[in-house]
Design a protein around this nucleic acid. Structure first.
Lengths: 346, 346
DNA sequence: CGACGCTGAACAATCGATTTCTCAGAGGCT
DNA sequence: AGCCTCTGAGAAATCGATTGTTCAGCGTCG
């Protein structure tokens, strides 16, 4: 009824093959140092096969002090962007033979008991933290005190290796597109004020704006990463006497909220206002107006974070900062951007 | 430099407190059977605190044959629906003191080595499988042979406890709405042909349609769970001589694709065609036309799956089927549905 | 006064695999 | 014949915690 109770151990294999666990272990692990008669080796392999032997991961971990597991602490898994990063991490770790444990940053940050049990010694070889805006210094410190850690798109104050998107380039790409179309009154709707990714994108926006119009007005609204906060930001914009002619939104989810509120207010995108969002998420083409975006290499970001950690675990020297520049930001033009309407002289 | 090497063991605590590891362990675990002098107990607790002792999870697992970890095998984590299920599972497991290991069903199904290392004996107390359409019988069998398993929204042929949404009710709710508006020519765009969730929703659709119009034509198109497949289905619809007046789409992501293609073709939603999507995802309100949806309790689905597994692990009797009926399907009306245009006599 | 029962705590086995030694025997060499 | 060197393999320690069993000491009771 329950074959789990009967799971064969190494000893069972050894007994069946008529050898000691020592050689059985060596043969099954392809120990290069071992010297075994071919005939013995064959007997062991056959015994393992007949029994359907699977090594006991926990016992092995205890002995070798490796768990082949890495922890992934993430915030807001509901965001499609974060899921893509997750995929990148998971893919690379799986290739390297590691399994991935997932935890939620909010829970861990507030419940130290849970953090302890997540980190319980020996269970994790390393941890990747993707915790969003910088509220989590303590969490980062707690984790990295216990196991090797790397950060993703977060501010680690330089104490922990970090993988980052090229946010400045992303902000530049978005803004350059609008400037090229002829826009000058461009607003930037950012993420949370403290988020370093948002700040980077904002810097790209400011750079391009200043380069094009030395005395242009930098016009920034802090929103957040959700569609609701995008709606709020758009309403704030609508309450002004005059709208900008174009908007850079630091995040596509936020941009979805912006577009919806503009539509509800009867503002025509792109004729009245152009909108560019950062992150070419799948839903961009399906929004109220299909959204022009800047595609960033999120999967590669996750993979790079995994690489940083794996390289640390392998004892190789690891850079403290990895900026993902390889697929550079790519502009994906859709319907939400157009040249500004010629000034009406009426 | 590296305090990890020095992580204190139970023996260290015992030595510092001047006792044996036996009592140290018993005191630290609040063993109810133990009899200890209060003074001794205090010494042990103090020693543990000074040393910053954390139990070694792996060693404990080996001894107790419990890992306090459950595995979650999922397909298509990019879907916001699946992420919500994931949140439900993770939340409930965390409450119960379990950590969650995540793996991808496609990878595991194709790479048996990876599956083995994921399941490596002793590492997981149980597994929750959310593998979508029924391609994965072998995976399910492989997993459940090794550890207790439960299924989510999948077809397990009754051998494994399964948590399910009330798909029939969802299909009914969507279709009833359209019938109430006066529609009769209603098309159903489903998921993959084998997906039991899609089949359930389709059955709800057929039931309501037949109840309202005994000789109505059941009109079903098989698509899939992605926006691209929704686009394909919509194009297929457009190639017909006559469009239906309303469409039920088995999934909101698919519906996004449908709406976009209809918009591109100049079809007015809801005036020419009404559309209802199942799953009230966040993006529904931001689509080409804001989408009327049926909200299903996805978080609760995940939580229920976790409950099934936890109850099995606790040795309690566990139902083989759990249908989530508690928050029933809720219709969320937006702009994509309206009464059919009166037949034009022109 | 000796057997008995508690109290408080230690001993030692165990979980399953890895790994460092150790070692018997065969064969080669002088 | 005696010594050495390989070859092939086993014995036993170890990883860190849990737990069934044992045990010393002390008070009690008949």
């Amino acid at each position: 009824m329950d074959p789990r109770k009967l799971a064969p151990t190494l000893r069972d294999v050894a007994t069946l093959a008529g050898v000691s666990t020592t050689i059985a272990s060596r043969v099954l692990n392809d120990d290069p140092v071992v010297r075994v008669r071919d005939e013995t080796r064959a007997r062991i392999l056959e015994a393992a096969a007949t029994l359907g032997y699977t090594p006991h991961g926990v016992a092995r971990s205890l002995r070798t002090s490796r768990s082949d597991a890495i922890g992934l602490i993430m915030h807001n898994l509901t965001s499609p962007m974060n899921t893509t990063v997750l995929d990148g991490v998971r893919g690379r770790c799986a290739e390297a033979g590691y399994v991935t444990l997932l935890a939620d940053s909010e829970q861990l940050a507030t419940d130290s008991g849970r953090l302890r049990s997540f980190l319980a010694r020996g269970r994790l070889d390393g941890v990747i933290l993707h915790v969003g805006h910088g509220y989590h210094d303590k969490l980062i410190a707690d984790v990295s005190r216990h196991v090797p850690a790397v950060l993703v798109n977060s501010d680690g104050s330089g104490s922990v290796p970090t993988a980052r998107l090229d946010d400045v380039a992303a902000g530049r790409t978005a803004t350059e597109h609008l400037v090229a179309l002829g826009h000058a009154a461009i607003c930037f709707i950012g993420g949370p004020a403290e988020a370093i990714t948002s700040l980077g994108r904002q810097r790209g926006y400011e750079e391009v704006l200043r380069e094009a119009y030395p005395d242009a007005r930098v016009d920034v609204i802090s929103a957040g990463w959700t569609d609701e906060l995008g709606e709020d930001a758009a309403r704030q914009l609508l309450s002004r006497p005059q709208l900008p002619t174009a908007i850079v939104v630091a995040n596509a989810v936020t941009a979805a909220g912006v577009l919806t509120v503009l539509r509800q207010a009867g503002i025509n995108v792109p004729n009245d206002v152009s909108v560019v969002g950062i992150h070419d998420a799948w839903f961009a083409k399906h929004l109220a107006v299909s959204l022009t975006t800047v595609r960033l290499p999120l999967f590669e970001l996750g993979a790079m974070a995994a690489d940083l950690l794996l390289s640390t675990l392998a004892g190789k020297p690891t850079p403290m900062n990895a900026l993902i520049v390889d697929p550079p930001p790519v502009l994906v033009v859709r319907e939400s951007t157009a040249p500004p309407r010629p000034a009406s002289h009426a």
